[in-house]
């Protein structure tokens, strides 16, 4: 399929990625190589790039465009001279997370973990940390989708065992 589109596109090699729900994405090679998982797929087998479709089991097609956009922008930031000002990177990162629900953030963390890209994973986990910092127990439970399986007595006991952690906190 890469050869058929070569008439219109330039010489940039493309790699086909297949999201968990079966949708295909054609991605420029340098962008695809940002993902360690994809990179390791081709180690010692570089010729296969043209006709192989790389299955990405934990990445839904919903998040692929955003994730690819992140790689493209951040690799451009790294290459730029002089380096981009912190505000520009911050603005991009903020826009990236805008309108993303907690659930979507979690899914993207899973995807970044699967794709094995440290930069994206660090950025997303930090975002998750910022969303739950100093929030109530109930809020954090909802955030991670945790069901409270403690009996009230058990919960009270554990609270007492770790009383210092709750000192001065407002309960709600």
């Amino acid at each position: 399929m890469a050869s058929s589109s070569s008439s219109s596109s330039t010489q940039v090699k493309k790699i086909t990625l297949k999201a968990a729900d079966g949708k295909h994405f054609e991605v420029e090679e340098p962008v695809a190589m940002e993902m360690e998982t994809v990179k390791s797929f081709f180690v010692g087998n570089e010729d296969a790039m043209k006709d192989m479709v790389v299955p990405l089991l934990n990445v839904s097609s919903e998040h692929m465009p955003a994730i690819l956009d992140f790689y493209r922008n951040h690799s451009e930031f790294r290459k730029r001279t002089p380096p981009p000002p912190a505000e520009e990177v911050k603005a991009f990162n903020e826009a990236f997370l805008e309108n993303k629900s907690d659930e979507q953030l979690m899914e993207m963390i899973m995807a970044a973990n699967f794709l094995n890209t440290k930069e994206l994973l660090n950025f997303l986990t930090e975002a998750a940390a910022n969303r739950i910092k100093n929030k109530s127990v109930e809020y954090v439970r909802a955030f991670f989708g945790i069901e409270n399986d403690f009996t009230p007595e058990e919960e009270a006991r554990i609270r007492a065992e770790n009383e210092w952690a709750f000192d001065g906190l407002d309960e709600d």
Binding site: K133, V140, R141, I146, A165
Partner: peptide, 15 residues
Amino acid sequence: LMDTKFAVGTCVLSK
């Protein structure tokens, strides 16, 4: 990534 006080507090979330 957080204040350790908060991290310890997550012990009551679930088993």
